[in-house]
């Protein structure tokens, strides 16, 4: 039993080290996305195109943050995701309403 417990602990430690490597990988992705966004804005690309891409990048970045940095990929996050995404949905409708239906 004793041996098994230490083995288990070793396994968990190793898994955590690996998770941490993923976190660093996530971080570098975020940096890359940010750099691309800033770079695209300073380039001469079509403004509408850039707008779409940087918003997409922002959403992807936030997804990475939520799933890795905030541990949403772990078990036991069903209810948190339900109500957090519920809030995001309500927020999306709010932004849509205020953007589309304020000036005409």
């Amino acid at each position: 039993m004793e041996e098994r417990a230490t083995f288990n602990e070793e396994f968990i430690k190793e898994k955590r080290r690996q998770d941490m490597r993923h976190q660093v990988l996530t971080f570098s992705m975020l940096i890359i996305f940010t750099l691309i966004s800033f770079g695209m804005v300073m380039s001469d690309l079509n403004a509408m195109f850039v707008r779409m891409v940087i918003i997409l990048f922002a959403v992807v970045q936030v997804g990475f943050q939520l799933y890795y940095f905030m541990h949403m990929n772990e078990k036991g996050h069903g209810m948190p995701s339900l109500l957090f995404y519920g809030g995001c949905f309500a927020g999306f409708l709010t932004v849509l309403g205020l953007v589309v239906l304020t000036w005409w």
């Binding site: 309403g97 304020t102 000036w103």
Partner: peptide, 12 residues
């Protein structure tokens, strides 16, 4: 400013 914003926020 735009007073419709209040109406949206209030009714949301």
């Amino acid at each position: 400013g735009n007073s419709i914003i209040w109406q949206h926020l209030f009714w949301i």
